[in-house]
């Protein structure tokens, strides 16, 4: 591994964590305004240092381990959730040259790593020795397994059209032709929407946040966690959403491709915009029930994804899509 790869990986991790921290502030501010509230105002100018205050609070708190919990798994699970969420970020190209891990199987690897994030969640749920946590973990597994399928199928559409599994090549293809949501719109837009839905479900966000549905399961897998352990799980969810938005904008919105200026800026801008829309969605909708979620995945998203893959394959054989 070259020095450049090391440095860029660290850079990307720092960028992602910083953006996530301020994404936290941004979400709270945005949610406040959407609810006709003020949002954070006290810590720093317009409450900008609120995430830092939150972090300090979480670090100070005593980590409590339930007596009958599986200590090793209980300790290990939260950092792993964040780690796996961050790993995905290493694969996302932030510029034509700035791709920490520019590998040829980028798309399957991203989806595999996204699926891997499930394991620490199950670990946490199992190790907590809590029925709510266990129910939450079971829901998380069911949901993640179900939504992995449409996620793969919709991610295959840009792969088929661009003819590459390398994320950077897909962006380069979009740079040469069109952004995928723009053209072919009948393939790109539905695939984009389905991808966003499946990604939300993978990241356990409303309206698909049933694994931690706090009105039903208290807090799902994070019920027994305190302090920074809870912080890691919380952070993982945000990183997951952020990285998911980054992947979605890479696959469908042209990634680092922009009319002018540096490519990193465009990537960050698109990601943040998508991130904000997802927040907006979150603060507007109620959650679905577990069985409705499964029905949505298997009855609608999977057939639609299959149809899209088929269409994309046909489209590449037509004179316009060649």
């Amino acid at each position: 591994m070259t020095l450049f790869a090391w440095l860029s990986s660290i850079l990307v991790a720092v960028i992602v964590l910083t953006v996530t921290a301020f994404g936290l502030w941004w979400e709270r501010k945005l949610a406040g305004r959407m609810q006709s509230r003020l949002g954070p105002t006290i810590v720093g100018p317009i409450g900008l240092f609120q995430p830092i205050a939150d972090l300090l609070k979480l670090v100070q708190k005593e980590p409590i381990i339930p007596q009958r919990a599986d200590r090793a798994l209980f300790w290990l699970a939260p950092p792993l959730t964040t780690l796996f969420a961050l790993l995905v970020a290493a694969l996302v190209p932030f510029g034509p040259k700035l791709a920490p891990a520019n590998i040829d199987v980028g798309v399957p690897l991203i989806i595999a790593l996204g699926g891997l994030a499930l394991i620490p969640v199950w670990m946490a749920g199992w190790a907590s020795h809590n029925k709510y946590a266990l129910l939450g973990a079971m829901r998380a597994v069911a949901q993640s397994v179900s939504y992995g399928v449409p996620l793969v199928l919709t991610a295959l559409v840009p792969v088929i059209l661009a003819g590459s599994m390398n994320l950077n090549s897909i962006v380069a293809w979009q740079h040469r032709h069109h952004w995928l949501v723009v053209w072919p719109v009948f393939l790109g837009l539905p695939a984009f929407i389905l991808f966003i839905l499946a990604m939300l479900a993978e990241a356990n966000r409303i309206p698909f946040d049933i694994p931690e549905a706090e009105s039903e399961l208290v807090a799902g897998v994070s019920t027994e966690y305190t302090g920074m352990h809870f912080g890691f799980i919380y952070l993982a969810e945000y990183v997951h959403t952020l990285v998911g938005s980054a992947v979605a904008s890479t696959l469908f919105l042209g990634g680092w491709d922009g009319p002018f200026g540096p490519s990193v800026l465009w990537m960050v801008l698109k990601t943040c915009l998508l991130f904000s829309v997802l927040y907006w969605l979150r603060w507007s909708l109620v959650r679905l029930r577990a069985d409705q979620l499964m029905a949505l995945a298997w009855k609608w998203l999977v057939p639609a994804g299959l149809a899209l893959v088929l269409l994309a394959a046909v489209w590449t054989q037509t004179p316009w899509g060649r």
């Binding site: 305004r33 959407m34 609810q35 006709s36 003020l38 105002t41 929407i193 907006w280 507007s284």
Partner: peptide, 25 residues
Amino acid sequence: YLLDGLKSMWTTALNAIRPPFTQEF
């Protein structure tokens, strides 16, 4: 569903431009 989701998002956006009803106590 998508349409109703968009309507909900419109409602929250509408409330975002209203003056906040909370105060810095």
